[in-house]
Amino acid sequence: MTSTPRATLADVAAEAGVSVSTASRALRGRGEMAPETRMRVRDVAAALGYARAAEPRGRPRSGTSRVFDLVLGHFHDPYTDEVTAGARTAAARLGYDLVLTAERDDPADDWPVRVRSRGSAGVILGLILPTAGQVATLRAAGIPIVLLEPPGEGAESLPRVRTTDRAGGGAAAEHLVARGARRFLVIGGSPSYRYGRARVEGFVAALGRAAPGAVCVRTRADWSAWDARRACATGLAELGGDGPIGVFACSDEMAAGAYRAIADAGLSVPRDVLVVGFDDVRGARWLHPPLTTVRQPIREMAAAAVQTLAETVAGRPTGHRVVEFATELVARGSTAVVAPSVSEL
């Protein structure tokens, strides 16, 4: 009986149409190259039965790696600072180091390969929905993934941690109605991520129940204070009419932009306009007046993502687990009831 010759690295390179050195770097997860090239080499290696392809770099088989990657699109804003703090504290408590990995806005960037090459034990993706190819790369290396507040509904097979966004939006509407608002402005986020849509949908549905027929203008901003200032100014001009205005912004940063637009219009918070944000990051308390907002427990959510990842690494199945944290409306000065002045009596 004649055995089939074992495939060599040179065979893989020839079949994939690349040099031997490129094939080697692709299979080891090293060096910069187009993701398509790397995937083509890996596919060819698998098809030929090349031994190296069965041993992708990643979490060591002994399970001794004590590093988790936290992957975010950006860092150093109030929200991601909270995520980082919560994840780092939880990782340290469980005996892991935390590596901060940026998802670069570059089609050629292959962050899963960077994660795999350093032997990470697992990955937390914050506000990111991975592609099928990215999931396949990490799974082939034995690296588990947990999603933290994913922006879409894909990758249903992965465990995820999120908050009750729709209920939070509903609580904002009920609170504004209870505080006397009669006309409403909603500042949604653009792009329209899953959590932003849920917040707006929850607000509109609750408003329909609490104040049927109330005027409600819906506008959108790019999740920044600067663009929210523009969107709020447009919405205020469209509202017109009499009666207190209630503004709901889908993030605290956008609520800060709404403050500026309200002042630009010669109005004041909360006498003329009541404002509710979402997140309860540190800056919400520093606005003047302090911002009423829907709190999501960001640090606790990040810690839960780390805990779920640690359980997976330890061999305890998490499957399609969804961990959902409840939101809580925190009332502050931006929706306070203002006593009438002497001239108004």
Score class of each variant (00 low, 15 high):
residue 204 V to W: 00
residue 210 A to I: 07
residue 195 Y to G: 11
residue 199 R to E: 05
residue 206 A to Q: 11
residue 215 V to S: 09
residue 219 T to W: 04
residue 225 A to M: 05
residue 202 G to S: 11
residue 183 R to H: 10
residue 217 V to K: 04
residue 185 L to R: 14
residue 209 R to Q: 07
residue 203 F to I: 03
residue 228 A to P: 02
residue 199 R to F: 02
residue 192 S to L: 11
residue 214 A to M: 05
residue 200 V to P: 13
residue 208 G to L: 09
residue 195 Y to M: 12
residue 222 D to N: 14
residue 209 R to E: 07
residue 184 F to G: 00
residue 224 S to R: 12
residue 213 G to V: 01
residue 226 W to H: 14
residue 225 A to I: 00
residue 209 R to Y: 00
residue 215 V to R: 13
residue 214 A to K: 04
residue 214 A to R: 02
residue 198 A to R: 12
residue 216 C to Q: 03
residue 214 A to I: 05
residue 222 D to H: 04
residue 227 D to A: 08
residue 208 G to S: 11
residue 198 A to N: 07
residue 209 R to D: 08
residue 210 A to Y: 04
residue 222 D to K: 05
residue 196 G to H: 10
residue 199 R to Y: 01
residue 201 E to I: 03
residue 214 A to D: 02
residue 188 G to W: 03
residue 196 G to A: 15
residue 222 D to S: 13
residue 224 S to N: 06
residue 206 A to W: 10
residue 187 I to P: 02
residue 213 G to K: 06
residue 212 P to H: 05
residue 193 Y to V: 15
residue 221 A to H: 02
residue 199 R to H: 03
residue 205 A to T: 15
residue 195 Y to I: 11
residue 203 F to E: 01
residue 185 L to I: 15
residue 206 A to K: 05
residue 214 A to Q: 02
residue 209 R to V: 04
residue 184 F to T: 03
residue 183 R to N: 12
residue 197 R to Q: 10
residue 212 P to W: 00
residue 219 T to G: 12
residue 210 A to Q: 08
residue 214 A to S: 09
residue 218 R to M: 08
residue 195 Y to H: 12
residue 194 R to N: 01
residue 200 V to S: 11
residue 223 W to T: 01
residue 222 D to V: 03
residue 183 R to K: 13
residue 204 V to R: 14
residue 216 C to G: 00
residue 183 R to Q: 15
residue 208 G to Q: 08
residue 200 V to L: 15
residue 228 A to W: 00
residue 193 Y to D: 10
residue 223 W to Y: 15
residue 224 S to Q: 10
residue 218 R to Q: 14
residue 200 V to M: 14
residue 184 F to C: 06
residue 217 V to E: 12
residue 183 R to A: 13
residue 192 S to R: 13
residue 203 F to L: 04
residue 225 A to Y: 01
residue 188 G to R: 07
residue 198 A to Q: 14
residue 202 G to R: 04
residue 185 L to A: 10
residue 227 D to Y: 03
residue 201 E to W: 12
residue 225 A to E: 10
residue 197 R to A: 08
residue 217 V to D: 04
residue 188 G to Y: 11
residue 200 V to I: 14
residue 204 V to F: 00
residue 214 A to T: 03
